[in-house]
């Protein structure tokens, strides 16, 4: 059903980690994405920013194979995700902006449930699980039902879920939403670490500081279109701004 995570690359496909070409998405007669294109290289941290309703989540969901493409193309290591969704799902990990976990499971049980999709062997599952427990860092509470977690605790569990499988591509929608400053910082560090270990990260955020700290490159989406793209330094220079927040304000308003 799924291959082990020890054999990444699913069929030896190659190319940039992500290649999005002219992506258009219609919800009925409403066009949420109006033809966006960008490329993310392997190991890069790429950020999507933009106002509410700009189309960030839509783009991330399409790349994660759960929304259908109206037109255009998404390639993951050269592999067309619309044509080979199952292969794409083996190497990607998606963290939805407001995801939940199964309430009747404990933290441990939830991570184990997910881990079993990514490894057939008992040792493999145990290895993934121990990584997950490390990332979640919830101590004893891992044995409690998810039901009893605070918002931040649940978010940490879900981040752990997304990263413990060491995906080749991590797609993280509003990574640190709901986390306090300390937790947010820790999670950023974990994501940075996995990026150093070769995971390609595509994230969206409303926290401009976070974006500036974490991302190698940024795309600014407004109203379904990419209106700016580049490294944080390039964007600041181009718009003569102190920080990305200023860039955002200048470009969007």
């Amino acid at each position: 059903m799924s291959t082990s995570i020890d054999k990444p690359g699913a069929g030896g496909a190659s190319g940039p980690a992500l290649e999005v070409v002219n992506l258009i998405k219609d919800y009925g007669d409403f066009r949420a994405l109006k033809g966006i294109s960008f490329t993310v290289n392997e190991g890069e941290v790429f950020g999507l920013i933009g106002p509410n309703g700009a189309g960030k989540t839509t783009a991330l969901r399409i790349i994660s194979t759960i929304l259908q493409i109206t037109s255009g193309n998404v390639r993951m290591f050269g592999m067309d995700v619309a044509k080979r969704p199952h292969e794409a799902r083996m190497i990607l990990s998606y963290l939805p902006e407001d995801a939940g976990a199964y309430k009747n499971l404990t933290g441990n049980e939830y991570l184990a449930f997910i881990a079993r999709f990514f490894s057939q062997s008992r040792e493999g599952v145990a290895r993934i699980l121990s990584k997950g427990v490390d990332i979640a860092d919830l101590g004893d509470r891992m044995g409690d039902k998810v039901d009893t977690y605070s918002k931040g605790m649940a978010r940490r569990l879900l981040v752990a879920r997304a990263l413990m499988i060491e995906p080749r591509v991590a797609i993280l929608d509003e990574l640190t939403s709901g986390l306090d400053v300390i937790n947010a910082q820790e999670i950023r560090k974990i994501v940075k670490d996995s990026s150093r270990n070769g995971t390609t990260v595509l994230l969206s955020s409303h926290n401009m500081l976070e974006v500036e700290l974490m991302c190698d490159r940024i795309a600014l989406i407004n109203d379904g279109e990419i209106v700016e793209m580049g490294t944080p330094a390039e964007l600041k220079a181009k718009h003569n701004a102190q920080n990305i927040e200023e860039v955002f304000m200048k470009v969007v308003s």
Binding site: M1, I66, R89, G100, A101, Y102, I114, F117
Partner: peptide, 17 residues
């Protein structure tokens, strides 16, 4: 309601399963 569907759908598991 519990927002678990999206995650489930991105897992490498056949829809038939």
């Amino acid at each position: 309601e519990n927002k678990t569907l999206e995650t489930l759908l991105t897992l490498p598991v056949k829809r038939g399963s």
